[in-house]
Structure formats: structure tokens, C-alpha cells
């Protein structure tokens, strides 16, 4: 549940930020008439900046290798699913999809095996977002006309998965969805 930890982490930061700004404000309200405020400003600023750079550097170093372009890159998928998108439907097939007369089929993906989605669009930009049976977004990629994006994923839980469009594509955008099964 990456989303939960993101939310928790964010709320923690917001809490720290709020306490910080409130205490700054209170310190001004409670200050004496002739107090001069922060001393050694330049030194404090230096340490603040240094800590900020180090923290962000660590954060970047820890998160960049987890980017989706690198996950599962060294494995061979067991299946490929072709995904064609059109206003306002998804076509999923184990065979290549003809843009002129697209058609899909019922998809069943074995669990714990690497699958590669080859996602493209036949008209406007669409999104291809996979939601697990508990309706959590687990992975996504954009569907762009003229390009094919390869998305690799290993499903661990069997069940019914939903696909939603996550790039605004017109008035039917919210009804654009599909499902597949992981067995």
C-alpha cells in the first residue's frame, strides 16, 4: 500500500510544517518590544540549506532506482497483452490489434508471472491505469497516439482487476473502463 505510506509521510511533513509556522507566529506575538530576532542568520541559513540538500539528495538516490522504467527490466515476460485505446473504450488482446477494426478479447493473466502490456492509442491521449480488486491504483502508463509504451507488471493476487482511463480524453472519459482477471 504505497499510497497509505505516502499519505502518512505527507501528513507527518504537514504536521511539522504547521507546528513550525505556528510557533514562528507565536514567537512574534510573544516577543518583547526590543528583541532583535534571529542571530547568526547566515550561519543558520547555511546549515538549513545543507541539511535540505542532503535530505533531498538521499530521497532522490533512494527513489530514482525504483522508477517504473527500471523495474522488471532484466526479466523476460511470460505473456504480452496488446492494449489499444479509443474514445471511450479499451481493447485488450493477446494478438496484435488492428487500428482499423480493433477488437479485444477476455483476458486472463496468471499470477506471479511477468506480463508486458503494449499500450497505444488510436485517437487521442488516454491513460491505462490498473486498479487491484480493492480498487487501489497499482500501476499505470499513458497511451499516446503514434507511440507504443511497454508496461511490465507482476500480479501477486488473483482476482478481478479494473482498468480506468487516467488522461482526460473527452466527455466519455469517466465511463472508459475495462476489466481482466488474474488467475
Amino acid at each position: 500500500m504505497q499510497q497509505n505510506s505516502i499519505m502518512l509521510f505527507f501528513m507527518l511533513l504537514v504536521g511539522i510544517g504547521t507546528i513550525f509556522f505556528v510557533s514562528i507566529f507565536m514567537s512574534s506575538l510573544n516577543a518583547d518590544k526590543d528583541s532583535t530576532g534571529v542571530k547568526n542568520l547566515l550561519k543558520k541559513r547555511f546549515w538549513f540549506t545543507l541539511i535540505l540538500i542532503v535530505v533531498l539528495g538521499i530521497f532522490a538516490a533512494a527513489t530514482l532506482p525504483k522508477s517504473p522504467y527500471f523495474t522488471f527490466a532484466n526479466e523476460t515476460p511470460s505473456t504480452v497483452i496488446h492494449v489499444g485505446t479509443m474514445q471511450f473504450s479499451f481493447f485488450l488482446s493477446t494478438k496484435p490489434i488492428d487500428p482499423k477494426s480493433p477488437s479485444g478479447e477476455t483476458i486472463e493473466i496468471p499470477h506471479d508471472q511477468l506480463v508486458e502490456f503494449r499500450v497505444t492509442s488510436f485517437d487521442v491521449n488516454h491513460g491505462f491505469a490498473v486498479y487491484d480488486p480493492s480498487m487501489r491504483l497499482i500501476t499505470q502508463v499513458q497511451a499516446m497516439p503514434g507511440y507504443v509504451n511497454n508496461l511490465r507488471y507482476k500480479f501477486t493476487e488473483p482476482g478481478k482487476y479494473h482498468i480506468f482511463c487516467l488522461e482526460f480524453c473527452g466527455t466519455g472519459h469517466p465511463v472508459m473502463q475495462a476489466t481482466f482477471k488474474v488467475i
Binding site: Q2, L13, V14, S67, G127, I138
Partner: peptide, 20 residues
């Protein structure tokens, strides 16, 4: 505070869960 939310979203490995 908005900046904190933005930095979280600007992280590629989080963005795949938060994009759009």
C-alpha cells in the same frame, strides 16, 4: 505545504501511484 505535496508527486516512483 503545497510544495511538500508537489515534491512527493514529483518523485517518479510515487508518481506512478498518484499521476492524474
Amino acid at each position: 505545504i503545497g510544495g511538500l505535496g508537489a515534491v512527493i508527486d514529483a518523485t517518479i516512483s510515487n508518481n506512478i501511484m498518484l499521476h492524474n
